[in-house]
Design a protein around this nucleic acid. Structure first.
Length: 864
RNA sequence: GGUCGCAUAGCUCAGCGGUAGAGCACUACGUUGACAUCGUAGGGGUCACAGGUUCAAUCCCUGUUGCGACCACCA
């Protein structure tokens, strides 16, 4: 028999064997109850990281759990085209081949991306399958496949028709590296050291007014200086003109409530084209928008010659020098402030005024808020509703357009003089134009399609229903929609969750999912974020190869405490692996013991003779209930813990130890039946080893565990502790005493004659085994030499000829005395008695037991 | 500035209004007929701090401190 469990050998085989069953349970139309999870579609560029692994196994546990219980279970897989991310990857690849992608025709570039997508798009799906995801790969969808693309066009045109999508020239977050707009939530702020310059703007002949700025280079775009209307220092200047340094251009000094008298110098330079706040002030005061840089973040020809063409930072440097030369820099200040970045490209965001497409989100957001307020959608943990609400309540119009090539091109056609037609196809647009201009086919003005593409998240927001055939087919929608659970990270509550809810409610008049499980962030074992630069990234594939997929799954599940980040190190997975080995060893024991699977032997039907067998069945039921309620409450950590505890503490350490000397049929059958039930319950978290062992113990005669329901006819059993529990504690106490006195040899255990004599006599074999003693005898009186001890008030005795340490005895006595005094004090409390009479009574009873134990202990002489 | 979370054994973390828990690490013992990727036993904590509620607080409330995340601001 080999010494180690070989996960690598069985995993691919089980995956292969599960395929048809998974497909069938999706397509199965017999069951009316469905369970659906739309898997968050990973980027086509992606490869599996621990975060994916974590989210995925949580989903798979639910899928397997529900599938075992007979639901028509759908885990809908897919891939996201990930507009900007993918374009960057492909552009870089082309660059490595010496091709400048910007010189390629639009179609040519897009073809390249498709080629690349075909090559590498399936990698992550394969990796998900390695994780044991029970998903049907024939159902894999792509956010840019034909159906999804049509759905996107449909959604866009519908929103346009309903007046929710509009085009406007507004200030947006501009990425000068990618040369595209991005939405506000794509901007991330980094705290950095920087400078604040106090710059003097000349007023009249010899006066100055000082402004403070971190972005001096934008001063060429200034349209005004603003002060607070009540600011005594500057009141007299309102209405006068100041001159922009280094130029001849003058700008008015205006009053605006927005200005704070405390910040900076109290004077605010207004540059509507390059700052969000300034843009708004500009709108209020009807100021011109003068842009001073181009789309790549270089100064344009609106600035003095010597600055033209310089990138922002260079221009800033040069400008400050020039100002200093003229004595126009009053002072500089070192400050810490946050700088907006686009993490994808690494670019510093430049607010720029451009023409973009926007979605008016306000009304959509209201419905989305209500859906959560009313409980139609539930968040786990609930606290994330705060995040969700906060964003939706302050929602801004969504900038939908991106000036990139890879994505869903906006379905709007422009005429040369600025008329727009939104349509699903060019032909439709032409027809609209024809009608609008009242012309015949030949005279339709030339139409050019808008070159922009949609934000990737636009198609993602439609994902839960697009994958079910929307808008074309309703069949699967009826069956699987709304989906049941969405499992995702808190970082995309805005990007994805909220938008799915908005679009779901808008387009399908229903919520897209009922429960949102926000899974924790995965960090390294010391709680640091995993990143390539820190070198602490753990590759899940490596862990799976080394320790087995089950080990990784069990480890992740046991760490899935809601509302708390997960710290994971390789040592954790090692523990998981050790546990898988333990299960395997337990099965080896059963095999050795010739415990055979008998499908007609039902351990639950309560006609067992032996107390120990009844006991393990009772424990199994308790375990099953714990596991079930943990899964029902999305407590995957507690579920994993129960899987762990039952096998180790109950089945192995107690039951297997106890039955080592039992060779009767009932015990053999029970052992196997309980183990078989156990692996069913453990299957959702550790599918491979359980499926493998199931196959082995059933000799392949049964259907796969994948679709085997847990037996659940538990009501007949009393779940109260019984004599078996008592004598298990007795045995534990014997082992503990032996350990503490350092006794290695086997001793004799004496039990004082009493009401349980019959039970002890007929169960002596396992009590002896568990207590690691030679014999167990019932006696009327105890000999003088030995160790007296108590379990739950009953007196016991270990024959022991040697002297044992007094300190050990004193220690026990002390604990007992402490218990007695604590309990005495506690029950003396009249308010306690009144408030919780039942608790109080059980404390009274306990005290009685302890008192007796203490008395007897004190009566024992320890002098030999 | 706002919101949320966290603080329990050396480490990573559970837990709970009524005797403080696990795993790892540590100590001792053990290759017994499933398992040394193991077993048995043991040591180890004023449950961040200060108030309050309660008969009773590690748990509930308030505040403080420290850490983290997000949003806003960023002249």
């Amino acid at each position: 028999m080999c010494k180690q469990f070989d996960h690598s050998g069985i995993e691919p085989r089980i995956v292969e064997k599960s395929k048809t069953l998974i497909t069938r349970t999706v397509k199965n139309n017999v069951k009316t109850e469905t369970f659906t999870i739309t898997l968050p579609p990973p980027n086509v560029t992606g490869s599996l990281h621990l975060g994916h692994a974590f989210t995925s196994i949580i989903q798979d546990m639910l899928l397997r759990y529900k599938r075992q219980h007979g639901y028509a279970t759908l885990g809908q897989p897919g891939l996201d085209h990930a507009g900007i991310a993918t374009q960057i990857v492909v552009a870089n690849q082309l660059q490595e081949q010496g091709i400048n992608w910007q010189e390629l025709e639009r179609d040519e570039f897009i073809n390249r991306v498709w080629t690349w997508k075909e090559q590498s798009g399936g990698t992550i799906l394969y990796q998900l399958v390695r994780l044991g995801m029970s998903i049907d790969l024939d159902r894999v969808r792509f956010t840019m496949d034909e159906e999804a693309s049509n759905a996107v066009l449909y959604a866009f045109t519908t929103l346009y028709k309903d007046g929710l999508i509009y085009r406007a020239k507004k200030i947006v977050n501009w990425d000068p590296i990618l040369k595209t707009a991005i939405s506000d939530i794509e901007v991330s702020n980094r705290i950095e050291q920087g400078k604040m310059w106090y710059i003097k703007y000349p007023i009249g002949q010899c006066n100055f007014i000082t402004i403070a700025t971190t972005r001096p280079e934008t001063l060429f775009g200034d349209q005004a200086l603003a002060v607070h209307p009540d600011d005594e220092r500057y009141k007299h200047l309102i209405g006068t003109k100041a001159r922009i340094p280094l130029t001849d251009r003058t700008i008015p000094v205006i009053a605006d409530d927005f200005c704070s008298q405390e910040k900076g110098s109290g004077v605010f330079k207004v540059t509507p084209a390059h700052d969000f706040a300034d843009f708004e002030i500009g709108q209020r005061h009807n100021l011109h928008c003068l842009s001073v840089m181009d789309e790549s973040g270089h100064m344009n020809d609106e600035v003095p010659k010597e600055f033209q063409g310089l990138p922002v930072l260079k221009a800033r440097e040069k400008l400050v020098e020039a100002l200093q030369e003229k004595g126009l820099v009053e002072r500089t200040e070192e400050i810490t402030h946050s700088i907006p970045y686009n993490d994808r490209s690494g670019a510093i965001i430049e607010p720029m005024v451009t023409n973009q497409w926007f979605l008016d989100t306000k009304t959509l957001a209201d419905a989305a808020i209500k859906a959560v307020e009313s409980g139609r959608i539930k968040f786990i943990p609930e606290q994330w509703t705060n995040t969700y609400f906060e964003w939706l309540r302050n929602i801004q119009p969504w900038c939908l357009s991106r000036q990139i090539l890879w994505g869903h091109q906006i379905p709007v056609w422009h005429t040369e003089n600025g008329k727009m037609f939104c349509a699903m196809t060019e032909e439709d647009a032409k027809q609209q134009a024809k009608k609008y201009f009242c012309v015949d086919d030949k005279s339709i003005p030339k139409l050019t399609r808008d070159p922009d593409v949609l934000d990737t998240w636009f198609s993602s927001a439609l994902w839960p229903f697009v994958t079910l055939g929307w808008p074309k087919s309703r069949e699967e929608m009826r069956k699987y929609y709304p989906t049941d659970v969405l499992v995702t990270g808190f970082d995309i509550i805005f990007f994805w969750v909220a938008r799915m809810v908005m679009f779901g409610l808008y387009f399908t008049k229903d919520v897209p999912f009922k429960t949102v499980y926000i899974n924790p962030l995965v960090r390294d074992e010391h709680g640091r974020k995993m990143s390539k630069s820190k070198g602490n990234v753990i590759d899940p594939l490596r862990l799976m190869n080394k320790y087995g997929t089950d080990a990784l799954r069990l480890t992740l599940a046991s760490l899935a405490v809601p509302g708390r980040d997960v710290n994971i190190g390789e040592s954790h997975v090692e523990i998981g692996r050790n546990f898988i080995t333990k299960i395997w060893n337990a099965s080896k024991f059963l095999e050795m013991k010739k415990c055979l699977f008998d499908r007609d032997f039902n351990a639950h039907n309560n006609n067992l003779e032996k107390p120990l067998n009844k006991w393990i069945v009772r424990k199994l039921i308790e375990f099953k209930r714990t596991a079930q309620s943990a899964l029902d409450e999305s407590r995957f950590d507690l579920y994993a813990l129960s899987v762990h505890k039952f096998l180790r503490d109950v089945f192995c350490d107690t039951y297997i130890e106890a039955i080592k000397l039992c060779d009767d049929d009932e015990t053999q059958n029970t052992a196997c039946a309980v183990f078989a039930e156990y692996i069913k319950v453990a299957h959702p978290v550790i599918p491979f080893v359980t499926e493998y062992l199931w196959e082995k113990i059933t000799n392949g005669t049964e259907q796969m565990l994948l679709i085997s329901p847990w037996i659940d006819n538990c009501d007949a059993h009393e779940l109260k502790p019984d004599l078996v529990d008592h004598y298990i504690s007795v045995a534990g106490e014997v082992r503990s005493l032996k350990g503490m006195i350092g006794c290695k040899e086997k001793l004799d255990l004496l039990i004082k004659a009493g009401e349980n004599d019959e039970f002890v006599k007929s169960n002596v074999h396992w009590i002896q085994q568990l207590a690691r003693v030679n014999s167990v005898d019932i006696v009327e009186t105890f000999p003088s030499k030995g160790i007296r001890f108590f379990v739950a008030g009953r007196e016991l005795f270990i024959k022991y000829p040697h002297e044992i340490s007094k300190s050990l005895f004193d220690k026990k006595l002390n604990t007992l005395a402490q218990d007695v005094s604590r309990l005495t004090e506690k029950i003396a409390n009249e308010s306690y008695k009144k408030a919780k009479p039942e608790d109080w009574q059980s404390d009274v009873d306990l005290l009685e037991v302890k008192k007796v134990e203490l008395q007897k202990m004190e009566a024992i002489s320890w002098n030999y």
